[in-house]
């Protein structure tokens, strides 16, 4: 039996469809949708093909010529740089002093930044210690005395020899003090 071709992939169900296809209306007012061969309509396929080609081209071009800035077509570069076996590994953290004089070691996450984000903006912190001041204001003090009056960005430097850690030193990258 030749059925009229419904537009699109799955034809609309219900009374109108049942009437158009000369089918008895199933209990509950719905007919089961017969599969229309050919899948998505021609235009749907064309749009899908174009979208596929564009996204593929974007992802490949981003990987070959692009940079992080081109997200969502950025290169897939997590852990893609090489650390020399005789080089060093830098791990940042913050150190603060509260109004009551207590010294604190503050992990980057406590100030709302991931470690990689601090590393990504390291040079900005170095150039502009005022940024640390603005960051210190976002630190959540439990009491007025635990408000930060000093904040430094410190880099732990693990030096490597033959691919093994062989020493540790620290470098203060930037310091902000409340005036």
């Amino acid at each position: 039996m030749l059925r009229p071709q419904a537009r699109g992939h799955y034809p609309r169900k219900g009374a109108a469809y049942a009437k158009a296809t000369n089918q008895p209306l199933a209990p509950g007012g719905r007919t089961s949708p017969p599969y229309t061969p050919g899948g998505p309509a021609k235009r749907g396929r064309l749009v899908r093909n174009l979208a596929t080609a564009l996204v593929l081209a974007g992802a490949i071009a981003g990987s070959v010529w692009g940079d992080d800035d081109d997200f969502p077509f950025a290169p897939f570069r997590m852990y893609s740089t090489t650390t020399s076996p005789s080089g060093s590994v830098r791990t940042p953290h913050f150190e603060g002093a509260t109004a009551s004089g207590t010294k604190l070691r503050i992990d980057t996450e406590e100030l709302g930044l991931r470690t990689a984000e601090v590393l990504g903006q390291m040079e900005r912190f170095r150039r502009d210690p005022g940024l640390l001041g603005r960051l210190a204001q976002t630190y959540d003090p439990r009491t007025a005395d635990s408000r930060l009056v000093e904040l430094s960005l410190v880099q732990g430097i693990h030096s490597l020899r033959g691919g093994r850690p062989s020493g540790y030193s620290e470098e203060v990258v930037s310091v902000w003090r409340e005036r």
Partner: peptide, 29 residues
């Protein structure tokens, strides 16, 4: 995601990535 991650290692880290200490860096961090 996987294949282009390998390409990114070649592009940004060079072939020396293979014999480098990237995993040491990852573990230290």
């Amino acid at each position: 995601t996987y294949f282009l991650a390998a390409y990114a290692k070649l592009r940004f880290g060079g072939i020396e990535w293979l014999n480098g200490s990237t995993l040491v860096r990852a573990i230290l961090r």
